[in-house]
Design a protein around this nucleic acid. Structure first.
Length: 429
DNA sequence: AATCCACAGGAAGCCCGGGAAC
DNA sequence: GTTCCCGGGCTTCCTGTGGATT
């Protein structure tokens, strides 16, 4: 027979085995009622302070319900101004009404940040319209583009009705792929026999039509709507409305909504940012076991959101782009500010040498610097220094709480060597 | 006014990988 | 297996830029 203390040990082990790490977490009291209502992809039924825009878009799209072709439109506004939410809402309502009165309307949304070439947009549209009897999808590569276009026209005609093609982040598409696609899409009605189509472009950039062919510009911009950024008070209304359905009423501390709104208003009136702040603050309070979300939770949430946004961007950069970013950081740690392209390139070439990587040309690095600027990891301002040439002044723009060196080294261990190299840590090479 | 610097950035073309069609 | 097509990454070549200097 085993001694009693050994028995107890075995019993304890058995108890531990039956426990699950999620047991305690699952039974924790939650402050949320419906967390999903605070997510970006949630489509609310009420859109505060966007009544005028909803009405304006509806007045145009109602033509589809009458069997006519609505005007093409461009919706402008900063990130988080409600452009996509408003468009989705109007399109859903349009489709529902169409079903009620027997008019076929097909809204199709394309996110041009993810689907960003002419070929991909056309094949995406074509595959969205795939009927069950159709044999196969349009492949993601392989066909000539005009064949994809003809297949799209064929499928649209086969289904009939009015198509509302929404191109979200259209500015990104135009900058990357030019305006051929827009030329074709705004010309669709001359190809279609049995269907009709209109295009709604959504853009963060007020000036993107400057890059367009004048014919495309006039056809696409038949009606423009500008979404002004939300101010702090409007953001408070949005947050209160969402908080009502998503968080326990007693759980929100004094000034929390106001702080989230104020911080988001500083970020150009970004409603998504405000919702993220409220959601993450509540999660933080919950994890602490607190029954109340308070202002310090918002501050913690703000730091975490900044870090969460930037970490995956850095870790998934291609090696060469990481090397360029590392070169900027090394220059900064050498005490330099407003680093010139040439200085970055010199350090970059040496960094390549340290880790035995082939270095790219200055032209390519110039492109990578612009790309890192676009991603918000650095700021690169073009300046002319007269006799001393025209260059860029480059500075990193990473949040203080982000350890970019660790992120890079974690993704690719060779960066330990890059940042550890004494040779690269001279000032003004 | 002309010159100069240190690039910026556009255009053209090459190469490679992935996929479809024949 | 070969050919065609697309997309992405890259290089080479080139023109443009704009303010300080001569």
């Amino acid at each position: 027979m085993a001694p009693p203390d050994i028995d107890n040990n075995i019993r304890e082990e058995c108890n531990k085995m039956s426990e699950n790490i999620f047991d305690n977490i699952l039974t924790m009291k939650t402050l949320f009622i419906q967390k999903e209502a605070l997510r970006h992809n949630h489509q609310p039924k009420i859109l505060p302070h966007r009544e005028a825009e909803v009405k304006e878009i509806s007045l145009n799209l109602v033509e589809a319900l009458k069997g006519h072709i609505p005007s093409n439109m461009i919706l402008y506004g900063v990130t988080g101004a409600g452009k996509t939410a408003v468009t989705n809402y109007v399109c859903e309502e349009l489709q529902t009404k169409g079903e009620q009165i027997g008019r076929v309307v097909h809204p199709v949304l394309v996110n041009c940040r993810k689907i960003d070439t002419q070929y991909r947009v056309l094949s995406h549209l074509g595959n969205t319209l795939l009927e069950s009897h159709e044999k196969s999808d349009i492949p993601f590569t392989g066909w000539p583009t005009d064949r994809v276009f003809n297949e799209l026209v064929k499928r649209m005609d086969a289904r009939g009705g009015v198509y509302v093609i929404v191109l979200d982040e259209i500015d990104h598409l135009v900058k990357k792929a030019g305006d051929d696609l827009l030329y074709n899409l705004t010309n669709l009605n001359t190809e279609l026999k049995n269907a009709r189509a209109c295009v709604i472009g959504i853009s963060n950039d007020l000036k993107f039509t400057e890059f367009l062919d004048p014919r495309v510009k006039s056809r696409l911009g038949q009606q423009d709507i500008i979404f002004d950024p939300y101010n702090a008070e409007q953001l408070q209304d949005i947050l209160r409305q969402r908080a009502n359905v998503s968080i326990n009423k007693e759980a929100i501390g004094v000034g929390v909504i106001e702080l989230c709104a104020a911080l988001a208003a500083q970020e150009h009136g970004d409603a998504r940012c405000a919702l993220d702040l409220l959601r993450v603050s509540t999660e933080k309070a919950e994890q602490e076991g607190s029954k109340l979300v308070e202002q310090p939770h918002v501050r913690i949430a703000q730091a975490q959101i900044e870090s969460d946004q930037v970490t995956p961007v850095i870790s998934t950069l291609p090696t060469q782009q990481k090397l360029v970013l590392a070169s900027v950081l090394i220059n900064e740690s050498n005490g330099l500010k407003n680093i010139q392209t040439g200085e970055v390139y010199q350090v970059y070439k040496q960094a390549c040498g340290v880790v035995s990587q082939q270095f790219l040309t200055a032209r390519r690095i110039s492109g990578i610097i612009s790309n890192l600027d676009m991603l918000g990891l650095i700021t690169a301002k073009t300046v002319s220094r007269g006799r001393y040439g025209r260059s860029k002044e480059i500075n990193s723009s990473l949040p203080n709480n982000v350890d970019s060196r660790e992120i890079m080294a974690k993704a690719e261990p060779m960066f330990d060597e890059v940042f550890g190299s004494k040779y690269l840590h001279q000032s003004r090479l």
